[in-house]
Design a protein around this nucleic acid. Structure first.
Lengths: 330, 330
DNA sequence: GCGATCTTTGCAATCGGTTGTATTTTTATA
DNA sequence: TATAAAAATACAACCGATTGCAAAGATCGC
């Protein structure tokens, strides 16, 4: 910038104003400076600007996938969320720093904020970290969490309507006459519990005689595979599986087929997320679409609002059922 | 930091040295400062430090997925690569900025570098941007590209051995007696051309009478699906498909099955990448494993070497065939 | 016990912008 | 033409760390 100042014969403060489109600069002067800047390929030094302006035009996204968490980053859900958030942030000229903590206790998230590397943080999922999120203190002003709506949260939450998602699945299964449903997932996780509650709500109080069995599985496909095999070997009969994610559903289908069961004739299977591959794989997967792209946009909009000091409240994004007859037969 | 200086009664220069483990500070003084820093939750201001040190401890990763590129970020390959690079960078205490250019001509990559937001750049894939990569000029000192080894590249390349990958597939198909092979992909892309060449090399000069047909498809699953349908309706017969990515292979399988063809009895299918879901989906997919995790590590190591001014050269990561009998029948 | 040497600490410049305020130049008004 | 108002530009402080160099304090040898 001092180079540009010398070239154009004005003070660097004028160069700075010209480059930032300030109305305090004469039109001709501004054009001249802009031309020189273009010719010399000048780019404003972000480090200096960040220091002076006390901001970094960067958001952080925290993906809680550490060794031993039984979920890895290649779960398409996370990856589609990263894409959605990145694209939304770009619209505001924000860059995105991605952070994968190495352990549940790591405080890399706060580090990003306190050190000023990021102006705000998007945390994907609250499982196992609710306490820590609640103790963010003033840092909470610059954090938005993706997750199921829970009472205990005093931080800003954005998430899809997990209860409604579960309800839609329940309704659909009921419509196609399935009554012995297995819920595959870990209901200790807030989002999963809400889906389970939604499923259960369908049969509340009516005369049917459904049975819903909970089979616990983390979000790891291999665990779901083993659990489903065990299920097949057990005494309980069932005609449908509602899995807490598409990855789990696909693993379950694989396990069922390896036991000679037909999908959907013997067992209907429904997943959750509608990941990009869900439609492409065979059999195509019936699932709940969380609209991750919209979710990412709302996360970013909400966070930028918070950074600007505007009050925001928790947001639910809509949820819809995507039926592919190959897994639910109807 | 000036706060810490006041608290501990020393100059901020001493605080700085203590926090950075300089041997120029008395042991007791250092302990005292560290204790205070811990108690007050102090974190070094990265903005100021970056400005002064002329570095940002941040790498950028550029994923060339723009509207109209017929490939979207949810291709698990990209996403697994992001994970691998992010984890490798974390080992060196580097953060990772992810950049998704909006158009092929966008210069966001240079912007990250010139503005100092990133110390170096990892570019995933060189398709359609070879010229621009070649014109990086001195910026090339801080750029590493993931892609197939091509002569024209005067920038640093890291990639898996695409020729060998193609050769392994060809050999395998030959071993199981398939001779009318369809190559599904776009051989105008350097990486894909190498895979194709590897495939062709298997039959060079020997007495067999194979036919290899090239069916062009971008990396978009829907296009591969349509192309495969067209193939089934065409006059040419074939008993194997080698697809340039797992996403394409899965789409092709889906298309074949919708036409009543059996995989692998009628048509064997092989993919490329070994994405995490490849093993889980049914039928499990035979494919080439590029070892993305290792690739990500090498990318980061190489880039950090370059940033440090060390000379580096192009690197090939190994490639291996992963056979799942459900798609190749043997 | 005193100069020489080694530790430890402080001072001040620096990184490259942004921005409040002062100053100069231009334009408008009387 | 003199003067007030407006526009354009320059000056200088500031953001919060790092680091070369000078200075102060501690230790040592003789």
């Amino acid at each position: 910038m001092s180079g540009l100042a010398k070239l154009s014969g004005v003070d660097i403060s004028t160069v700075s104003r010209a480059l930032n489109g300030s109305p305090l600069v004469n039109g001709k002067t501004k054009d001249h400076i802009l031309k020189l800047a273009h010719e010399t390929g000048y780019a404003i030094n972000a480090r200096a600007r960040n220091l002076r302006k006390q901001s970094s035009q960067t958001l952080g996204i925290v993906i809680p996938v550490y060794p031993g968490s039984h979920q890895n980053l290649s779960d398409p859900f996370f990856l589609e969320m990263i894409a959605a958030v990145s694209q939304a942030a770009a619209k505001f000229d924000y860059d995105l720093i991605i952070n994968l903590p190495n352990s549940p206790s790591e405080i890399a998230e706060r580090r990003l904020l306190l050190s000023g590397k990021a102006d705000g943080l998007i945390v994907i999922g609250q499982a196992g970290r609710i306490e820590r999120l609640r103790s963010l203190g003033d840092a909470a002003d610059r954090v938005v969490v993706w997750g199921g709506m829970i009472e205990a949260a005093d931080y800003t939450l954005v998430g899809s309507d997990n209860f409604e998602g579960g309800r839609l699945v329940g309704e659909h299964l009921k419509n196609i006459g399935r009554h012995r449903v297995v819920f595959l997932g870990d209901i200790d996780l807030p989002e999963v519990e809400l889906r389970y509650n939604g499923l259960m709500s369908v049969w509340n109080g009516d005369g049917a005689d459904p049975s819903v069995m909970h089979v616990r599985s983390s979000f790891d496909g291999h665990e779901a595979y083993r659990q489903t095999l065990g299920l097949c070997e057990g005494a309980q009969s069932f005609d449908a599986i509602f899995a807490a994610s598409d990855v789990l559903a696909i693993a379950a289908i694989h396990a069922l087929q390896s036991k000679g069961l037909r999908v959907p004739e013997d067992v209907a299977v429904v997943g959750y997320d509608n990941i990009g591959q869900a439609a492409m794989f065979s059999p195509g997967l019936t699932t709940i679409d969380q609209n991750i792209t919209l979710g990412g946009e709302i996360l970013v909009n909400t966070l930028i609002d918070k950074i600007a000091g505007n009050p925001v409240r928790a947001t639910l994004t809509p949820t819809k059922l995507v039926i592919r007859s190959s897994t639910v037969g109807g």
